[in-house]
Design a protein around this nucleic acid. Structure first.
Lengths: 234, 234
DNA sequence: ACCTCTTTGTTTGAATTCAAACATACTTGC
DNA sequence: GCAAGTATGTTTGAATTCAAACAAAGAGGT
């Protein structure tokens, strides 16, 4: 564990990963470096298969994966394990837990390769420094935007998932996607299996519904392209 | 539409509602007033049944409901209407859309009584004022905490909902609740119908599963009290 | 051209959930 | 104490989804 100012050369290695992180959107390489120094970011390493964070821990740092890969997992009381996300360089994690004082982690993070992690103390991130460094404000705005985006994303997903039937989940998702892209003709970023996983339904059942919807004239689809017909039988 | 500094007496009427809002947690009455002036909050009124916000609009303001009641609703392309939340005085809304530049509202907000709404420009809220007013920092921290809390809440709900079977949804929820409360013996904030709605399952089917789980010795429950047995048959 | 792998749609019986009843215990107000 | 209302558990047939298999079409490599 060491601070950036003492090991400038390490930064070069991390910059490519950090630049991918939405937290640093709109900042130049130099500005990212300055910010990290200003906030007192630290680097830690974890060997493959080590726990980076463990459910039950507390943390007041938002963590950026600088190198390696990791899994966010969740285990329930009876040992059922669930993979939530897989993390790539540039991804960040633990941010909601770090933002809530004394929040206890409900997930664990395990390194699936040797990892290097940049830790940023949330309090120092969201407390304006006395030097009032010009990039600090931008960082705070980026953080808020990142949270807001995740909120919207989750909100939409819950809307789709809360529908009881596969058909309704599909219509909810496709309707939202058309609105988001501003056109009744659009591509989705999923293949059939991924879409089924996203909506938490069986791919087979979903395929059946898609066929029905096409026969009823509500939509046309080929691979990941969709065209909706608002004025169908109804 | 008018600014607070010109109409101080209006504030008194709103203080009770605003004090309930987590955005102002830790601020005294005077500090809330000072902050609202500093940020340039504005008040608007909407008559019953009017749209306060409409899907497709843009807004750069986080809105606080000061008086009255309203509904957050969502309509899909085929006219299916869905009530997302009902808003009470002290609740806030539209915050994720305000935090993302040029984000288009995917929900509408309709007044169900005559409403008074305090609008706070998100940019002025998250940009530190030159006077560096001491409460401004606290507001920004509160905002981030509020976003983080919502992220955690949604994250958990998605975890439960993504389970395919009623039984697994129940175990996922109860497991998380036990962890959150730090005890295998705990109360939940729902009655049976509310729990079923929260997990998006049928109350009857859920009741059946709860009975089975009790017969299998995995848990005991009476009304909203639960006791989990981690070392059951498995 | 041929083979293999992937993606998508279809089918089928079993499992699960839905929807609508009804029964029972408890509250609440009179 | 009684009536009406509410919360919870149970049952049942119908609708839906699951899980596993198979078919067809296309992509990619040799």
């Amino acid at each position: 564990m060491f601070e950036f100012k003492q090991r400038g050369e390490i930064l070069e290695k991390f910059l490519n990963a950090l630049k991918k992180c939405p937290l640093f959107a709109g900042l130049s390489d130099d500005e990212i470096l300055t910010s990290l120094k200003c906030i007192g970011a630290k680097v830690r390493k974890n060997a493959k298969n080590q726990y980076i964070l463990q459910a039950g821990d507390c943390t007041d740092c938002i963590s950026l994966l600088a190198s390696g890969t990791a899994l966010v997992i969740q285990e329930d009381l009876w040992g059922n394990r669930n993979v939530m996300t897989n993390l790539m360089p540039g991804d960040y994690f633990a941010e909601p837990f770090a933002a809530i004082p004394d929040a206890v982690l409900s997930v664990s993070v395990v390194a699936t390769e040797n990892c290097e992690i940049v830790e940023i103390n949330m309090n120092r991130l969201i407390t304006m420094c006395s030097a009032a460094c010009s990039h600090h404000n931008r960082l705070i705005k980026n953080l808020i935007t990142a949270f807001a985006q995740k909120t919207l994303l989750f909100n939409e997903k819950i809307t789709h998932m809360s529908k009881r039937k596969t058909r309704d989940k599909l219509l909810s998702y496709l309707s939202a996607e058309a609105a988001r892209q501003g056109s009744l003709s659009f591509d989705i970023p999923f293949d059939r299996q991924q879409l089924a996983d996203f909506l938490c339904v069986e791919r087979a059942a979903m395929s059946v519904e898609l066929s029905k919807l096409q026969k009823e004239g509500l939509l046309k689809t080929f691979h990941s392209h969709f065209e909706l017909s608002p004025n169908a039988t109804n």
